[in-house]
Design a protein around this nucleic acid. Sequence first.
DNA 1: TCAGATATTATCACCAGGTACTAATTTCAG
DNA 2: CTGAAATTAGTACCTGGTGATAATATCTGA
Lengths: 205, 205
Amino acid sequence: MVRTIERLPKRQRQQQLSKLIEENPFIADRELNRLLKVSIQTIRLDRMELGIPELRERVKLMAERSYDAVRSLPLHEVIGDIIDLQLDKSGISIFDIREEHVFSRTGIARGHHVFAQANSLAVAVINEEIALTASADIRFIRSVKLGEKCIAKAYVRSNSGGSSKAKVEVFTYVGEEMVFQGHFIIYRSAGGANIEGGDENADRN
Amino acid sequence: MVRTIERLPKRQRQQQLSKLIEENPFIADRELNRLLKVSIQTIRLDRMELGIPELRERVKLMAERSYDAVRSLPLHEVIGDIIDLQLDKSGISIFDIREEHVFSRTGIARGHHVFAQANSLAVAVINEEIALTASADIRFIRSVKLGEKCIAKAYVRSNSGGSSKAKVEVFTYVGEEMVFQGHFIIYRSAGGANIEGGDENADRN
DNA sequence: TCAGATATTATCACCAGGTACTAATTTCAG
DNA sequence: CTGAAATTAGTACCTGGTGATAATATCTGA
């Protein structure tokens, strides 16, 4: 066999293998050999070529990751990395659109992720123990795609007398282009009793 | 030995064992036998008495838990279970507020999860290959708490001539109480080129 | 068509981290 | 001292592999 012409079946099988394992990391070689109709040795050779560890190692890795993650948890505390924050004034956050945020078929980000970034930032920028989103008026200006980096900028527009509501505007950009804008009304803790929002301002680092 | 008087050493050892395993679930019996200065068989008898599974099972359980969490938590596929869907007319989805969705301190759900359920439903109810959220006007009427079951109902209000935009209203309830309402403008695929939204209509079951 | 490379399959020995079972030994309390 | 509980020991066996070696199959270019 010469380098230039690829033996397709092997490549295909290895792709399938990767996919199967990605879909169900708890699958053992025995099962794979039955599913793919090749010997268990071939499965193992394939795994080696692909650098996929054995079942036990995979499971252990997942457990370790979750053990670390569970301790720090904040996978979804704040969406996006806040890189600048002037409380009660403005804030900036960055959010990378990755595989898990898009529709696999089109690579377009689901709207609620873009919203989540903006919402998190709007809440974070309010300098209160508890801040909750009361309402929002949002516009998706263009679709955001896999791999794009969303930069959200929030500006506190009004901050009525230290209580009740604050208005926050958020603009999200990909490069120079605005892709999203939102006007948020954020409830501040203040009275504390009659909170009506759906988000708060805890745990930001 | 009589029932009434406890042999302390055993109890103590088992407590230590539990503690050690809780602190580091990745510890094998060999290590434990060295640490506790008893034979490996004793360690195993202790584990049995305490109902603590073997290392591999422990690790697998952790991995599975995190795997489920990763699958269910993410702002990923469609948020909420769609239990009724009349395309271009209406739809209902259910979404349980769990640990992952709330601020741990207050048990109040983050706004973007509530939004995500409504957004997913609004997009799903539109009978098009590709449907994207163009804009939305939303209101969080009261905060939703851990353990509450959100029932979102979507109604397609206008559906301008098979192309361009559709208006969808979504109301989310906990029991009788309305907790969220949103007015969504959804772009339908139609031309397909000039999509502007942030969400689409794939992968609903 | 045939040699040589590549791919696949088949064995065999071995490993960790156990389970399950039996049996011997130790400990200790009454 | 005796008998029960506790501990230790040893064996066979399990899963889900690794690693090495060898045989067989398949393709491929010249």
